[in-house]
Design a binder for these strands. Structure first.
Length: 245
DNA sequence: AACTCTCACAACCGCAATGCG
DNA sequence: CCGCATTGCGGTTGTGAGAGT
């Protein structure tokens, strides 16, 4: 098995992953990288998406209210993922970082006063978690007839009608059903659209005439990458260096 | 200007949980 | 029930930026 790449993600890799997910949805993390042309593990791709590339993720600029929620929920032993569920747009990893780099220290220095969370708040949080864990106890979703939706590819008719498959040569269509790498789509793994998640289409459909895919700055703007990452990367490519620092 | 230290955060790892045949 | 594959969680590490000396 080829070794997976282990290093900071490049803008090109980000674009490959986002482009792929935008076109085909998330159908199987472990197999997606191969079809997206990425030398990354599925785990790495999932983490990158969940913590960084997902347009739902907000980064930085924590409000006092958010900090207090983190502190209070952590104080009673609630896990990172449950706290993330309580804070829309925040990933568990980011909250964890926030805790370790800011809040823990502030508490140690008694900069913030730890308040006993209101019982109602805790019960409300627990109710939410119960609903998330046992959705069928609360409502029964209508299961779509997948055989009518998916014919050759595990993507929806909407996506089939709105993608230009020929525009990107280095991204492969997911495998068809019945092949050796049949993705075994189930209801719970149904691919979803970014539009469904975000409400709006946040990504440009512009395709670079030379490279076939949008440039990073077209997608995210230079501020997307911290510490002038994009600038340094671009310079490294221009000077044909193998590693940029 | 050069070096060291600290901070912030991206990303990795190991393990647990879950799903599926 | 079992074994394997996949996904999710939490702890930890690595690295770049900026502050301090």
């Amino acid at each position: 098995m080829a070794a997976f790449k282990k290093s900071p993600w490049t803008p090109e890799e980000d674009m490959q992953l986002v482009t792929y997910i935008r076109r085909y949805g998330i159908w199987n993390w472990s197999q997606m990288p191969q079809h997206a042309g990425l030398s990354r593990s599925g785990k790495s791709c999932r983490l990158r998406w969940m913590n960084y590339l997902n347009p739902e993720v907000r980064r930085g600029n924590y409000t006092q209210e958010e900090d207090e929620i983190i502190i209070n929920m952590r104080h009673v032993g609630i896990g990172w993922s449950a706290i993330a569920a309580r804070l829309p747009g925040r990933s568990d990893n980011e909250i964890k970082n926030r805790w370790h780099s800011h809040l823990k220290k502030r508490i140690a220095n008694n900069v913030v006063e730890i308040m006993e969370p209101e019982m109602e708040e805790i019960e409300s949080t627990m109710d939410t978690l119960m609903i998330n864990d046992h959705p069928n106890d609360f409502f029964a979703p209508e299961v779509p007839k997948l055989e009518e939706v998916y014919v050759d590819y595990p993507i929806s008719p909407y996506m089939l009608n709105n993608i230009d498959v020929s525009s990107s040569s280095n991204i492969n269509i997911p495998p068809a059903f019945g092949t050796s790498v049949d993705p075994h789509i189930s209801f719970w793994r149904e691919p979803y659209l970014l539009e469904d998640v975000c409400g709006i289409d946040q990504y440009a459909t512009y395709v670079d005439p030379v490279f076939g895919m949008p440039r990073a700055e077209d997608w995210f703007g230079e501020s997307f990458y911290p510490y002038n990452y994009l600038t340094r990367y671009t310079e490294a490519v221009a000077h044909n260096t193998t590693r940029f620092t």
